[in-house]
Design a protein around this nucleic acid. Structure first.
Length: 346
DNA sequence: AACTCCTGCAACCGCTGCCGG
DNA sequence: ACCGGCAGCGGTTGCAGGAGT
């Protein structure tokens, strides 16, 4: 059911920028009487504006507790983290940034952060790598083509080497993109891990910056029964409400999943819908590399898929672990996780 | 100096959700 | 249950000022 536009019956009302005199009238009136009904305020305050315009002017500009000036890195980080969980819910994001208005945060997002994320190769809407499925498909096709090339002409050593390098690069890139899918989805950060035959992957949360993660907690993440979670996470937000709708929390730390009786090589278990959809699409595009098995999970049937990959992916993973850069990167993360081994319950 | 283009931001528009009758 | 009024929210617009040519 629609409703008539605000103040549409009052054609003579002023629009556009506010004059200093109008601002002062509004400030004086609200300081003396409070805003009360916005609908009737303009008349009482002697303003030729509609109530909506007055409310907006007060809320976004004249309110005494408004914080002006540049956003700090901390504020920027909070906005990115919250946006990854809440999306374009600017008013909800604003409740976590005292003195900042929803309008101001929205503008800051659109003019600064959005561009920054794009420059970093991230989709500002999903916070995922901008590698869309077509791009992933291209990479998996490159990998397949390289492997096929090996089979078709195994005696051409030069071609073999070039193709092998291309295959290796493609594997690593594909792996990194998979990690991106796993890492940048909301619930997947607490419910999905990258698990190999020997290496457990300690994963990070949404928008992990300086060790802080924001996770959505409006659903309880389920963990398949044959998995154990270990590691350490410390809650850093004070308004976390476990189980409440629309709640959120900040955590620090990492934890990992291990499957004591997992013989198959498994890339992900216990996905949320978004992760599952991303991975399902990837699996359907590259069935020669990935397979997907449904695991029965009575607690939460929505989070029960297992993605399995071709062995070569895990060989690439191990190679990445052996690589100097990769090794030091993972060593840092493993050092962080080794401080505690108390189980986490979700 | 004059013009165009770009950027940032305040303000508007139209829709939704809530609440009381 | 329905309806209408209101506040609030998010997308969009328009303008001022700066940068580039």
């Amino acid at each position: 059911m629609g409703r008539s536009p605000c103040c549409s019956d009052e054609a003579n009302l002023k629009k556009g920028p506010w004059s200093p005199e109008e601002d002062q009238k509004l400030i004086d009136y609200i300081n003396n009487h409070g805003h009360g009904s916005w609908r009737t305020l303009p008349k009482h305050a002697g303003l030729n504006r509609c109530g909506k315009s007055c409310r907006l002017r007060w809320a976004n500009y004249l309110r005494p507790d408004i914080k002006r000036g540049k956003y700090s890195e901390e504020e920027e980080r909070i906005i990115i983290n919250l946006h990854s969980v809440l999306g374009n819910k600017w008013s909800k994001i604003a409740t976590h940034l005292p003195g900042r208005t929803d309008n101001e945060i929205k503008n800051f997002w659109n003019t600064h952060i959005r561009k920054k994320l794009l420059n970093m190769g991230l989709d500002p809407n999903t916070h995922k790598s901008r590698t869309d499925l077509n791009h992933l498909l291209n990479q998996s096709q490159l990998l397949c083509a390289a492997q096929l090339g090996n089979l078709m002409n195994p005696w051409d050593s030069t071609a073999f080497k070039v193709q092998a390098d291309a295959a290796e690069l493609a594997k690593i890139q594909l792996l990194l993109n998979l990690m991106q899918i796993l890492n940048t989805n909301k619930l997947s950060n607490v419910s999905a891990g990258l698990i190999g035959p020997q290496n457990s992957y300690p994963f990070e949360g949404v928008g992990l910056v300086n060790g802080t993660s924001t996770v959505c907690a409006n659903e309880t993440a389920s963990i398949p029964q044959n998995f154990q979670s270990t590691g350490s996470m410390t809650q850093t937000s004070s308004d976390y409400q476990q189980g409440a709708d629309d709640s959120w929390a900040c955590f620090e730390g990492q934890f990992k999943y291990e499957s004591p009786d997992m013989n198959d090589k498994c890339l992900s278990s216990s996905c949320d819908f978004q992760t599952e959809n991303s991975l399902s699409a990837l699996v359907s595009e590259s069935p020669e590399i990935f397979s997907m098995n449904q695991m029965e999970n009575k607690t939460n049937p929505n989070h029960c898929s297992t993605i399995s990959a071709d062995t070569s992916i895990f060989q690439a993973w191990e190679k990445l672990m052996d690589d100097e850069t990769g090794d030091s990167y993972w060593k840092d993360i493993l050092d962080l996780t080794s401080s505690s081994s108390s189980p986490i319950e979700w």
